[in-house]
Design a protein around this nucleic acid. Sequence first.
DNA 1: GATGAATGAGCCTTCATTCAT
DNA 2: CATGAATGAAGGCTCATTCAT
Lengths: 195, 195, 195, 195
Amino acid sequence: MTSPCKLTARQREIIDRALELLAELGARRFTMKRLAEKIGVTEAALYRHFASKNDLLLAIVHDFESSARNELENGLPPGLQGIAAFITSRLDRVAERPALARALFTEELFDESQECADALRQMFKKHRARLIGLFQEAKTNGEIRDDLANETLFTIVFGSVRQLVKEWTRSNGAFSLLKRRDMLLDAFRKILRPR
Amino acid sequence: MTSPCKLTARQREIIDRALELLAELGARRFTMKRLAEKIGVTEAALYRHFASKNDLLLAIVHDFESSARNELENGLPPGLQGIAAFITSRLDRVAERPALARALFTEELFDESQECADALRQMFKKHRARLIGLFQEAKTNGEIRDDLANETLFTIVFGSVRQLVKEWTRSNGAFSLLKRRDMLLDAFRKILRPR
Amino acid sequence: MTSPCKLTARQREIIDRALELLAELGARRFTMKRLAEKIGVTEAALYRHFASKNDLLLAIVHDFESSARNELENGLPPGLQGIAAFITSRLDRVAERPALARALFTEELFDESQECADALRQMFKKHRARLIGLFQEAKTNGEIRDDLANETLFTIVFGSVRQLVKEWTRSNGAFSLLKRRDMLLDAFRKILRPR
Amino acid sequence: MTSPCKLTARQREIIDRALELLAELGARRFTMKRLAEKIGVTEAALYRHFASKNDLLLAIVHDFESSARNELENGLPPGLQGIAAFITSRLDRVAERPALARALFTEELFDESQECADALRQMFKKHRARLIGLFQEAKTNGEIRDDLANETLFTIVFGSVRQLVKEWTRSNGAFSLLKRRDMLLDAFRKILRPR
DNA sequence: GATGAATGAGCCTTCATTCAT
DNA sequence: CATGAATGAAGGCTCATTCAT
């Protein structure tokens, strides 16, 4: 359910620890050496499982992406409920795996690898397209107001979610993400309600 | 301790070029060597003006901060207009100085220096407090709806502004920031209007 | 100590592929990993057949040497014909097995292993002694001029052959080695003819 | 007389020591670290003078090439004398600077850097063209026999010179290069004399 | 006010090799 | 016979920083 990609068990393990480290240190200080140390092996050992740091990073992104795809492409209800489901799914994922959140929600982290940045940007584009589709649907259904451009809606909704994640991450989980998520969802329902 | 302006002319110059480079390359590839090259001096020369890279980074942050302070602490009208003015001022600054935007709006960029990160976080806190104050005011004045928690309002408003900047930066200024800013402001007025 | 043939079938196979790889990549990039990949086994598997890379290299050299020995020690006609036969045999071998040529004619390739270098030097010495013997014979027989020192003759004859191989190798077989060999042999006959 | 190239004094120094090391160890074991050690500085120090190992290698080749160019392009007498002068100049250079000989006469040494290999090949081509021109001239002048193809002449003459250098290098200068050079020149005059 | 030269620490990567299974 | 996992040593390179001049 989390990875159709052909990763070996050891690769999964490494990716997991990498994610943790990424969350702990930020991408800047995430080095192969430190990862090796954390796992308790030599740097050289890592290179038997990933040909390069770039490949490792890419694997992380792809793994995340493929796990996100299912969710977003198939499992979303239409219109407003879809929007809520999108937000819920994003934030649940963050809550259950904070490492991933810090690692991936801030795309900047991967500016080390052009390929990675591209992959993330690609993913972002898809999410955007999906969300905008849902906005249009919800408008047509009369579920949300129609006096706001879709792009503006996207900026507000996606920006808010991201901001919430950022606040949560930065506070080291000092508040309940789920509670704040519900507050945010509630707010969206209110402010987007047709007049 | 907050050093409003005690910068020499040369220091200002360096900060300016540093900002450009930061915007061009991202923090990751922003190195003293490259900065020196861009300015046309030796690395050693930079150390005449800033004791360390950390200090240079701090100077950038402080400079930005002190310029933001005036604006926000004194010059803001009350309530809803203040909120709009805050957003306008932020985004105008970004538009006129894209380098700064890319350099500072994404706090991650500074995770190289704890001090820098702290300074930025400090600034962020102030902005947050100021905005939340304005939200309260606007609620009291009956200018905006009062069924949303201030922190949620903050997440939405600040998150949206940030998201807009991010989109603009990432698109390399492909769209008019001012136009989208007005759309966003208009959207805020609509969605926050008291029922 | 010179191990004529005690190679298992698998060892022969490995040596063959090693020779190919050596020719393809040059000694510098000839690694156990790449060899294993080419053969389609693990690196560890190679170590079942050769205790070390050094041993593998040595086996290549010894194999080559022992195959050369027969030819040169027994099968050579005397005097000038022997010289021609030596050259012909060398170049035929190169033509039929370019890998070997590139691998072995340039002794530098083996400066990785002192033992290898020594073995090659040893072989070189023998060839030199053999050729010089033939020169002397040919002089005595009045087949070639006697106003050139044997060492000078060797430098000219052996150097020319080597140069031809080098040109051929470097051009990736762009010209007919056999044709140029005949031209060279013809030239030798002409220039070495007694006045 | 040795370098029209714009090299700093320090760069020259480094190139010189690099040449020595190259001769001592062979290209295979020539590492930046060892070079740094030999010079008595850190590896990092080397990188202030050459941006990369590749650049250093290229500088060596170019330096050598430019010093060779003068000689060969301008200073050669015509015909047979030119041939002798070419050989003499090559071998004198080798004698006075054995490091260079071992480093450069064997082109294989540089198969680490494609650029280097190309530069050397380029140089080789020029030398070849020059020599072949001289052969033709000498034939026309009736100074040498005309029953040998120019390419065959080249193979013999250039191959012999190279072989001599190789023998000398490998013997660690056990014999007088100049004496053997004279023997070789004498041999050439004899064997190439028109019938 | 700036340069040239250097440094120590660290980064990503590759290599030959080992060993339990 | 072969694999999967690991390792120590080394290689090329970059970074922030220092210091004598």
